[in-house]
Simulated assay, not measured.
Amino acid sequence: MTTTPTPTVFVTSATGSQGGALCHLLRGMGWSVRATTRDASSPAAKALNDAGVHLTPGSWDDEDALHEGLRGCDKLFLCLLPNLTDFDQAPRRAELITRLAREAGVDHIVASTTLGSFMVEEGHVPPVKIGPFFSAHIQSKKRVEQAAIDGGFQYWTVLRPGFFMANFVEPKIQFGYTETKKGTWTNSMTADSPLGLVDHVDIARFAAAAFQDPGRYHGRTLGVVSEELPVQEAMDQLAESIGDGRSIKAVFMTDEEVEREQAKGSWLFFSSEPCIRYMSNYTDLGELNQFVPELMTFRKFLRREEEAVKETYLS
């Protein structure tokens, strides 16, 4: 009787929300997981070590560390943080990691990028003009995807997540969403356009599903959201979860206000990009629930992250 070898997955961004969730999910399945970390003493790295993740000290630019980390791996989760002052950095790293992964014998890749990549597909005309800063950001993400697709792997899947539920709690709230602490959230959506919210744990579930069933997911590019809500409804649920009687008002920018914000060249591109209003055009919740049933709702996410909500808004 032959036994199937236990898969070994190299996970980038292992100490981040997506990568960390995937590491813990895969370890719960009994799979082997390897990663690199720049700070083995960080709480996130210690938690991964305790879960049995093999950590190699080093960065995504350190070829020796990547060689060591990728040793014995047959699958790769590629999720690279953007550098908003150097949009070439992530694609460079993607090309390096995918090349070294193939040399190490990896034959299956799942890449996670952004839902905005749909707007720069070849031959596609976005519904509205994309601002230059946001365009550079999603073009960079698209190049990361292409490195995965062109990397010579037997199987590839691209996941394009929507707006992270975790953006409204620590630590991600520091990246431009702290206004909700003051009782408002100014954004480029409209009262009627649905906000595609995604739980980072659901992204990990999609990645794990793709790794488990490569034939079903091979060649697929999936826009991933967990729930779609009107912005004000999402703010109402957030306020309710805080539990101190406050309200949070969604403030919708006019097109003129959007243009003024875009002219500033701010990296807070989500709040100044009207194309975000059309993100729901690129997702299919019915299909997503067939792939991964029981996706997280925002209300359940806030309940699960109750401690982080209290720390963010009440401490």
Score class of each variant (00 low, 15 high):
M189E: 11
A104G: 09
E145D: 15
P161S: 03
L80I: 15
L70V: 00
T113G: 04
I130P: 05
T157M: 02
K181L: 13
L115D: 02
G123T: 06
G176M: 10
D88M: 05
R92Y: 01
Q89A: 14
F87A: 04
G116S: 13
R99D: 14
F87T: 06
G176K: 10
P171L: 05
S140P: 00
A101M: 09
E95F: 00
A90M: 04
G162K: 05
N83T: 07
T157L: 00
V106R: 10
S135Q: 14
R71F: 00
A147V: 09
A148P: 09
K142Y: 14
Y177S: 14
K75E: 07
A111R: 01
P126E: 10
T113H: 05
G152A: 06
V125S: 12
T180I: 15
I109A: 13
V128L: 12
S140G: 13
G131V: 06
V120F: 12
A166L: 08
T180C: 15
Q154E: 15
Q146V: 04
K172G: 03
L96Q: 13
V125Y: 09
N167L: 07
L96H: 01
T184S: 11
T178F: 06
G69H: 06
T186A: 15
R160D: 00
V125Q: 15
F87H: 08
V125P: 03
G152N: 11
F134C: 12
K75N: 05
G69T: 02
E121Y: 04
P132L: 09
Q139E: 15
F163C: 00
G116I: 01
L81S: 15
R93N: 11
R102S: 08
F153V: 11
Q89H: 09
K181E: 08
C73Q: 06
P91G: 04
L84K: 10
I97P: 12
T113D: 05
G116N: 10
Y177I: 01
R102M: 03
K182W: 03
P127K: 04
A148S: 13
T98A: 06
W185M: 14
K181Q: 10
F118S: 01
G72P: 13
T157I: 03
N167E: 05
P126V: 03
E170Y: 05
M189C: 03
G151L: 09
W156K: 00
L159V: 04
F118E: 00
G152R: 05
N83I: 11
M189P: 00
I109S: 02
F77S: 02
R102Y: 05
K172L: 15
M165G: 01
R71S: 15
P127N: 08
K181G: 13
C73H: 06
I149A: 09
V106M: 13
V158W: 03
V144P: 03
L80S: 04
A94T: 05
S112F: 07
D150W: 01
F77Y: 14
V120C: 11
L76R: 07
Q146A: 13
K142C: 07
R92Q: 11
T157C: 09
N83Y: 08
